[in-house]
Amino acid sequence: MAQFKGTERYVATRELEVAVNAAVALERPLLIKGEPGTGKTVLAQEIAKALGYPLIEWHIKSTTKAQQGLYEYDAVSRLRDGQLGDPRVHDIANYIVRGKLWEAFEADHPVVLLIDEIDKADIEFPNDLLLEIDRMEFYVYELRRSIKARHRPVVIITSNNEKELPDAFLRRCFFHYIRFPDRETMEKIVQTHFPNIRQDLLREALTVFFDVRNVSELKKKPATSELLDWLKLLTIEDMPPEALRSQDNKTAIPPLYGALLKNEQDVHLFERLAFLTRRKV
């Protein structure tokens, strides 16, 4: 079986590789947690590419129900068709809407199934999917038949930790927590996105970036995606590295900071800090 490894597009630590390969080998879900922007969602795409499987993505919202992943019976459409005298109304199968799990189970090639941000849903959500993910099978009452996975999909589940997940659910998963990348790893990540970036610019930018992250009062700390956006702007503007250097990075406003600080209050905070240092000088 193909193994998952970091690629020129995605930097994977050895611990991440081990966790992914364990989950793939044992056909168990892999639960991925970590700060926003640490590459949880992208990981599933990379795993799919590495294994050569198609990716099916199920993005969870606060209103998502477990049943929607299996199938939904669209009673309202049927009622409407009934009122309009549409002949389709006689076959209930016309009103069964397949969910992502169904899609993944019936695919004639193994797939990677991403259940993204599972913690967004109601607290019961993971429990409701327990059996189906375990047995890779479920029953459709309306059609009186069960849907069984032809190939067990590789299931990747991400969570931002908004809700606790039930123990029974956790016991069935492998788990990996992506730590916020240290400078060295971050340098590699940036290089996968900007292979031709000027080294001196990168160095200065990373210093500013980690300094900004160190300001503890920030409401939202910039993460990888913000850094990448910012670097893109810096390169487009052809910003000289010197422009990033300043006496005290902690309190100066970095150029094009709009890309790093998305929160209005944080921008104000920075402006205030910069004002204070300017007065001190």
Binding site: R14, E15, V18, A25, L26, L170, F175, H176
Partner: peptide, 21 residues
């Protein structure tokens, strides 16, 4: 299944992924 090979560090990573949730 040979996920970890014979590397202690790999074993550490594997044990962690399996036992800590």
């Amino acid at each position: 299944a040979g996920v970890a090979g014979f590397d202690v560090e790999d074993f550490y990573h594997l044990a962690r992924a399996a036992l800590v949730k």
